[in-house]
């Protein structure tokens, strides 16, 4: 497993290899074919399969609607939302169609589609191109939200998402596109609905997804130097959550910090906190902490944006607080 490639390349490879394997897989979206996507993630696909890569009009409803309909016919669409923020103009198709098809058809057919959505802030593009949209979808049973944090996960989780028969919103954080990591050349799947313990520890559990994972890792190193052992859980699938892995970890450490890039209200941190309060109360040694953005739109000016997004120092503060409690 020596080869190191970027997160973007891993995604690209996942799609190409799945398309080689399964001719029901096709890609569609704005500028995904000839140009290879705004972020270049689909490059090279149209060149190989001009009849399986489609540039669409600016029509997110049509893109996701078509994906629903084509899924029911047995195809496996992989649609790209250039920015996850645009999900609002095709929300109906995801929420009212994709998430309900299997239920309505009682298992006979389902929206076996993937919507790749480019998410997250920090690129100085303001509130229409920087939001973390997972909370907008987290209370829609029937949908799956997948959130890779490394190139290895990018490939394995995208392959699993394409093969999965549920509608998957696949979140790609802009900041991760260029990071490099070891990625096997062959096709492989990382199972959905399973969180991954990135690092074992006994004193504090930090749950962190996507770009927040690196905060957690750095904080774990820093705390280790002080003799505090941090366990890191990366959810990988944000919804439905792998409650068991998180519970096992927190039962051991008795302390939980959730790091999430979006606003504090109603993120995965809120869900995990509430769930543990209900189901694991007796194991807790300290209050649950959330490190998040402020509850504002994402502003444009770099100083303002940095102020709003979560800070690494906040993670350290939270660690100290739960240990001192």
């Amino acid at each position: 497993m020596a080869r190191k490639i970027s997160f973007s390349k891993a995604l690209n490879e996942a799609m190409i290899q799945e398309m080689e394997r399964d001719e029901n897989v096709f890609i569609l979206g704005e500028d995904v074919a000839k140009m290879g996507g705004d972020f270049g993630i689909t490059s090279g696909i149209w060149d190989r399969w001009p009849n399986r890569a489609f540039d669409t009009a600016l029509s997110e409803s049509a893109i996701t609607g078509l994906s629903c309909g084509a899924s029911v016919c047995g195809l496996r669409p992989v649609a790209e939302l250039m920015f996850a923020d645009f999900i609002t103009v095709c929300y109906d198709q995801l929420v009212n169609n994709a998430a309900k098809l299997n239920y309505m058809y009682q298992g006979e057919a389902s929206a076996q589609m993937v919507v790749r959505a480019v998410t997250g802030g920090g690129i100085r593009c303001a509130y229409h191109h920087s939001q973390c949209i997972e909370p907008w979808l987290m209370n829609i049973p029937g949908l799956v939200i997948v959130a890779p944090a490394t190139p290895y996960e990018a490939k394995g989780l995208l392959v699993a998402s394409i093969r999965n028969n549920n509608p998957v919103v696949f979140l790609e954080h802009k900041h991760l596109y260029n990071i490099k990591g070891e990625v096997p050349e062959e096709l492989y799947e990382i199972p959905l609905y399973e969180a991954h313990v990135e690092r074992e520890g006994t004193d504090i559990t930090i749950v962190a997804a996507m770009s927040m994972l690196k905060f957690a890792q750095k904080a774990a190193d820093e705390m280790a130097a002080k003799g505090i052992s941090v366990e890191i859980v990366n959810p990988r699938t944000i919804f439905p959550l792998d409650k068991e892995t998180i519970k096992e970890s927190v039962a051991k450490t008795g302390r939980l910090i959730v790091v999430q890039e979006g606003p504090k209200v109603m993120g995965y941190g809120a869900e995990i906190g509430a769930m543990l309060g209900e189901e694991l109360f007796e194991y807790l040694k300290a209050p649950i902490k959330r490190v998040t953005s402020l509850d504002t739109p994402v502003p444009f000016a770099p100083g303002m944006e940095d102020y709003v997004l979560p800070h690494y120092e906040d993670v350290i503060t939270a660690c100290n607080e739960v240990m001192a409690y």
């Binding site: 049509a62 996701t64 609607g65 078509l66 309909g69 084509a70 899924s71 029911v72 016919c73 198709q93």
Partner: peptide, 10 residues
């Protein structure tokens, strides 16, 4: 109206 695009596309 948009979902029907998918079956027609198929």
């Amino acid at each position: 109206v948009v979902t029907a695009l998918g079956t027609a596309f198929n």
